[in-house]
């Protein structure tokens, strides 16, 4: 299908983009790999598309002693190929290479994926587990645990955009695990889990629940904890079971990594 008729604007700065996005019916587009299908299916019916890929300075990376920073317009493919700095153990590259298909990874961006906030997307779950935060165009730093408000919703104000994502470096003794269940490689996941542990403390995040990623700590960061959280999030017993299996795999990968 063809999208509804819309106008397109290509602002040269975040401030200009914010002004355009204040208009009713305006929608931001980064790589367009999630919005594109919704436009073509006429599920999204904007009056104005504000494309962000003409704004300079959003596709860069930076790093310091404590963290790596990834610009919002850095593509999944660039991360998968190791062209962005690694916070440790290649965690970002491992997550990125499992996102959709190569042709989609070449266009889709980390910032766009976060702002789209599809419950089944990889970055919200992975970056929540890694303790990342986003830096917005209005200078706010928002922890990932606070950033996703629900299915397809974030706490961004209208016109506010994600400029970059800051991911703390992993401790030297950390272990990492990530597992997701898809009916076909590249399809929307129907269960996923990411785990980060240093042997003593553990963070387990389950995603694709239909809402925001669910963060479980330490004693709750278990296979059973994941099942309980999935049931509490309203999933049926079968879906909750698949979530618990993903949690088990992620936790196992993480504990093996922490021991190594």
């Amino acid at each position: 299908m063809k999208p509804v008729a819309f106008d397109i604007a290509a602002p040269a700065s975040l401030a200009e983009a914010a002004a355009l996005l204040a208009q009713p019916g305006a929608m931001a587009m980064a790589g367009g790999q999630s919005l594109g299908p919704m436009l073509n299916l006429r599920l999204a019916r904007p009056e104005l598309i504000v494309r962000l890929n003409a704004i300079p300075g959003l596709a860069g990376v930076a790093e310091d002693a404590d963290a790596v920073t990834i610009g919002a317009l850095v593509t999944h493919a660039a991360i998968a190929d190791g062209r962005a700095p690694d916070p440790g153990m290649g965690v970002l590259a491992r997550a990125a290479e499992g996102i959709a298909y190569r042709a989609v990874r070449n266009r889709g961006t980390i910032g766009g994926s976060l702002c789209h906030a599809d419950p089944a997307a990889d970055w919200p779950t992975v970056l929540t587990a890694l303790g990342a935060s986003v830096l917005t165009s209005s200078g706010r730093r928002i922890a990932m645990t606070d950033f996703i408000a629900g299915a397809f919703r974030t706490v961004l104000a209208r016109g506010e955009l994600v400029a970059s994502v800051r991911i703390p470096r992993l401790p030297a003794d950390a272990g990492w695990g990530y597992a997701k269940a898809c009916r076909k490689p590249g399809e929307f996941a129907h269960a996923m889990a990411a785990a980060l542990t240093d042997g003593a403390r553990t963070r387990l995040v389950i995603g694709a629940t239909g809402g925001k990623p669910v963060l479980l700590h330490d004693a709750d960061a278990t296979e059973q904890g994941a099942r309980d959280a999935a049931l509490a999030a309203g999933l049926d017993p079968v879906a909750a079971h698949i979530q618990s299996v993903m949690a088990r795999r992620a936790l196992q990968q993480a504990s093996e990594g922490a021991r190594a």
């Binding site: 700065s13 914010a18 300075g57 209005s138 209208r158 016109g159 506010e160």
Partner: peptide, 16 residues
């Protein structure tokens, strides 16, 4: 990939 400037995001006007 380019390098992000140190003060990425600062000095921008707040959203409406």
């Amino acid at each position: 990939l380019g390098t992000l400037s140190r003060d990425e995001g600062e000095g921008l006007s707040p959203p409406p």
